[in-house]
């Protein structure tokens, strides 16, 4: 199958991600974590455990943000057929999967001491897990398809349709649970806690942006290398 869209990706050279963005992002994380751990009082009910929330909750937010990017750029690819949109969606999907896995692990580390079990089939936990599985499928599809146009179109469709399903999964698991037992309500929020949470969220957002940009740079480089190799093979014949 002739690959027309590769012309477009070769038109602009792959971008360079600034090292400074990385430095700033990680410095921000260190600052936010130090600040929030030092300033936050031990919670009335949860004691020190509540400190896990400073990483767990922002990680969950970043997961959803990353998959929102996947959805938006998948739709944009289907609309405009610009290959770079596909590469950006794929980069966001991989980074999102990393944050998703992190969210699940931190949730379990929280759940064991707080609830006495590693896992409960609660709506948020379960839909986060299903989201993880949907995007594992997305990444597997990309790994198993060689033709770049097929890969782009198919993963855009899978990404968009998968994202549509997320609220439905959440709703269905919630009904499934609440029809049998009441939902557990989150504790009251301390103002100091909210500030720490926001700082950590901003810091992690910088890390997210840095990761996606860096991953996108790699994707563009690899794509350009593929094009070079293809051109060389054509010229050799």
């Amino acid at each position: 199958m002739p690959d027309i869209s590769s012309d477009r990706s070769a038109a602009t050279p792959p971008p360079r991600t600034s090292v400074w963005l990385g430095f700033v992002a990680f410095a921000a994380v260190i600052f936010a974590q130090t600040f929030s751990i030092l300033t936050s009082p031990a919670d009335r009910d949860m004691g020190h455990l509540q400190k896990i929330m400073y990483v767990h909750v922002p990680a969950a937010w970043m997961t959803f943000l990353a998959f929102l990017v996947v959805f938006v750029y998948s739709m944009r690819y289907l609309w405009k057929q610009n290959e770079n949109d596909d590469l950006l969606a794929a980069s966001a999907a991989e980074v999102g999967a990393v944050f998703n896995g992190l969210t699940l692990m931190l949730g379990m580390i929280w759940g064991r001491p707080a609830w006495g079990v590693w896992w409960v089939w609660d709506a948020r936990l379960t839909s986060t897990l299903v989201l993880f599985l949907i995007f594992v499928g997305y990444l597997a599809l990309r790994a198993f398809v060689d033709d770049s146009v097929q890969r782009a179109k198919w993963s855009a469709a899978v990404g968009a349709i998968g994202a549509i399903n997320v609220p439905i999964v959440y709703m269905s698991v919630k009904w499934w649970r609440t029809l049998h037992q009441p939902q557990s309500s989150p504790g009251t929020l301390d103002p100091a806690y909210t500030l720490g949470l926001r700082l950590n969220a901003i810091a992690l957002l910088l890390v997210l942006i840095y990761f996606i940009r860096k991953r996108y740079e790699i994707a563009r480089l690899e794509r350009a290398i593929e094009d070079f190799a293809q051109a060389a093979a054509m010229g050799g014949k």
């Binding site: 994380v29 974590q33 020190h48 455990l49 990680a59 990393v98 896995g101 692990m105 890390v207």
Partner: peptide, 19 residues
């Protein structure tokens, strides 16, 4: 409380190892 602290340390360690 000591046990809780171990879980907090575990959580932050996991976060840094992954990232």
């Amino acid at each position: 409380f000591e046990m809780d602290r171990n879980f907090v340390i575990a959580a932050y360690s996991v976060m840094w190892v992954v990232v």
